[in-house]
Design a protein around this nucleic acid. Structure first.
Lengths: 146, 146
DNA sequence: ATAATCCTTAAACCGCGCTTTAAGGCAACC
DNA sequence: GGTTGCCTTAAAGCGCGGTTTAAGGATTAT
């Protein structure tokens, strides 16, 4: 067994472009890719799994430079596990920060949307200053211009 | 009343650089900024609130071009509210997508971390292939190499 | 044999979102 | 009246993360 994939197969399975994969390899994020006799890359399942993981981390804000640090540490063996844990724990903090940013944004969007509905239903007006139209944060809080 | 702020005050209150604020204005994200007799910008509370909201949206992946669309629609009056709602609803979808990406990444990080702890405690080994060191997804799932 | 389809590389290019630089104006303090 | 410190503008520069281009090699199908 030990099935190997061409770059095209890999890119199809992963949903990321072949140039991107090559770029990752060039940047050192993807060590130990073997080649066939013609110099064509051969990806194994392990590589696909690692790329998939990188994709997941990248999509949530991890920098390539951090991925590279982790690769380099991994290549240095198990003695670097504490450092890798520390990187991942920092990244985890980052994820939590992003979660609360998302929650905040969701609140703000919902607030805006309900303001718009109020305006549509005639329950509120879009105030004087033009910016207020986008900007009317209070939403039926203070109405001292009766 | 109707307190106005210099760009420096605005940038301090908002935690974003003065050049960024100028850039936003230039890009049309920030209409109706008044000037004093010397041509210096004067920001009112409304502007600060709107910038703060933009910051919140930007931090969670909204493109400047989308912000600009919303500004332009707002400048066209209440008749564009349906379009603005539609934009915000799409963005909301985006936020949900990001939320699940974050959740996925958190899972993956926690998985990695527990693999590392297993290795540290001698409960698992860091397998053969070098990539496996980073890459050993299964984590005490299948161990058919007895 | 020729065309299509895959692969390779190096290098150039791109969009985004700022940041930095350069050149200058006004105002207040010492 | 010079220095400091704020402001202005236009334009250039930058870091990131790829994408695109160009030039070429090998395999397969017709």
């Amino acid at each position: 067994m030990n099935m190997a994939f061409t770059i095209k197969e890999a890119s199809e399975r992963l949903g990321c472009s072949a140039p991107t994969i090559r770029y990752y390899e060039k940047e050192g994020l993807l060590p130990y890719i073997k080649r066939d006799k013609h110099g064509n890359r051969l990806f194994e399942q392990d590589h696909l799994d690692w790329i998939r993981l990188m994709k997941c981390f990248r999509a949530t804000g991890m920098k390539m430079s951090l991925l590279k640090q982790m690769v380099n540490l991994a290549l240095d063996g198990d003695s670097t596990i504490p450092q890798r844990k520390s990187i991942l724990n920092q990244y985890k903090e980052d994820l939590f920060r992003r979660q609360s940013e998302l929650a905040e944004a969701l609140d703000a969007v919902n607030n805006k949307l309900s303001i718009y509905e109020d305006i549509e239903m005639g329950r509120a007006s879009s105030e004087s200053q033009l910016l207020n139209k986008m900007e009317n944060q209070q939403h039926s809080a203070s109405d001292r211009e009766g």
